[in-house]
Design a protein around this nucleic acid. Structure first.
Lengths: 120, 120
DNA sequence: CGCAATAAACGATGGAAATCGAACATGTGC
DNA sequence: GCACATGTTCGATTTCCATCGTTTATTGCG
């Protein structure tokens, strides 16, 4: 492993990835959290990601994210370090990932119903 | 025809909308198509949208999109014209809708699945 | 006042996906 | 070699949701 370059899991060419596939991958709350964690940490593995599901489920989500083009996974010994394909995603879908990662959480307000006009 | 202002269906305040909710709404292919059609046409109703599902299903999707903050629906007679809340979405999630609406379809590549043999 | 048109509300159903546990594979270190 | 840690894969289960047909409500029109 010392004198050898990293090996990577197969990943799709982003030119052949549809934006609907990416949105589908990001629609799951756990996967969205994984994406945010990876953006903050740079890299992460199945066991280091702090998500409220079991390891087998995390593995499934990481596979989904990788097959949708969002992640790149490199094999280091016994662990698999995944990272966001941020630059490539930015070239393929400019502004998409950035807008999601920089999105602020919703404002916590008690009374909410904005009704522009009377209904009945 | 009357001198009365339009009435609108209730819609959420975008400040209280989570980006995950929007991604969830956009993850469905039919809803993504509806969003694109509305972006192109400006406005549309349940019967004018060209989607491959029944009207009741379109109604359900329009409701989902409206409750996620993506659509505003105004009542005109017995029809309901929906439009994208594009400007508000741009302020709440800068770049998100734009990146999705301007996303190019995946590149169609001719892939030879056979082994690279001699060209006969 | 009926009648057609538009669309939402309702209930049911089929299929897809998330989740889990167990089994299996692989690499690490003693 | 053996025990342990890390992850994937498989099968089963369960939950969610897209879809549909029907019904209900409202509007517009004769």
């Amino acid at each position: 492993m010392l004198d050898q370059a990293d090996t990577w899991l197969p990943q799709p060419d982003l030119d052949q990835v549809d934006v609907g596939t990416v949105l589908q991958a990001l629609s799951d709350p756990v996967r969205l959290r994984i994406v945010r964690l990876l953006d903050a940490a740079g890299e992460g593995s199945c066991s280091t990601l702090d998500v409220p599901v079991k390891h087998s489920t995390v593995s499934h989500h990481l596979r989904t994210l990788r097959e949708s083009g969002l992640l790149a996974t490199r094999l280091v010994g016994n662990t698999r370090l995944s990272r966001l394909r941020k630059d490539e995603m930015e070239r393929r879908f400019p502004g998409l990932l950035t807008s999601i990662l920089t999105a602020t959480p919703p404002v916590e307000v008690l009374v909410t119903t904005e009704t522009p006009g009377p209904i009945s």
